[in-house]
Nucleic acid binder design. Sequence first.
DNA 1: TTCAATAATGCAACAAAGCCGCATTATTGA
DNA 2: TCAATAATGCGGCTTTGTTGCATTATTGAA
Lengths: 113, 113
Amino acid sequence: MILESLKTSKSAISQDNLQAQLGDLVDRATIYRVLNSFYEDGVVHKIVGDDGKQYFAYCRNCSEKSHHHNHFHFRCLNCGKIECLPNEMEVNLPEKYRTINFNGFISGYCSLC
Amino acid sequence: MILESLKTSKSAISQDNLQAQLGDLVDRATIYRVLNSFYEDGVVHKIVGDDGKQYFAYCRNCSEKSHHHNHFHFRCLNCGKIECLPNEMEVNLPEKYRTINFNGFISGYCSLC
DNA sequence: TTCAATAATGCAACAAAGCCGCATTATTGA
DNA sequence: TCAATAATGCGGCTTTGTTGCATTATTGAA
Ligand SMILES: [Mn+2]
Ligand SMILES: [Mn+2]
Ligand SMILES: [Zn+2]
Ligand SMILES: [Zn+2]
């Protein structure tokens, strides 16, 4: 059920989001565990929002081995939607620096709000 | 004292960071309040790390009215330093979207680690 | 099919980060 | 000088996320 929600959702979703969908069918801890194992298995990517919360989005344009997650995410301060922005980014790190995790996040107002 | 720490620190710092410097001279809640009022007054900028924590960095290349905070921050997973990366970024938002807050964060390993 | 080994879940507790109300203390300025 | 205002400490509270442990479910070899 969680995988289905992730697949069909257009936006990145968080635990409380899923909890609202599932009610008390599934425990809080289980949702977190499932999301984390999806993340470890490369099924979803994880973003930490500027609200300090973790969001998860189904990997769509990723092959098994090569993931492309260097895009920004947008959160509308009014309607709350979290979107993946299309453009993949490149960031110039200083010499010899190595990226492990990219976390690009912008909050603001979407076209409807 | 908090302002002094922010001014002299080369990296963005968090509450627990300051607490370690100040000991129990200043209460936890007060540190948060001071940091937030600096932020509201445009004295510092605030970044939410991919560890979910808030970091604050003294505004260095900002004028009173125009701030330039569209840069990434880097956290070394080994030594823990948080740096402002020099390059200012531009992100293409979809039509009619408006940016309120930019939060670029990369974690990885620095040149020394 | 059966049943022991393994995995997933629920429940409760816990920790970290951050915020807020309220009483107290400090600062300001008329 | 002292009343008004602001800053602080303390305690409690919420939210987010994790973990230990007992229970339940699933798996797969005999
Ligand atoms: Mn991916
Ligand atoms: Mn600034
Ligand atoms: Zn919106
Ligand atoms: Zn380092």
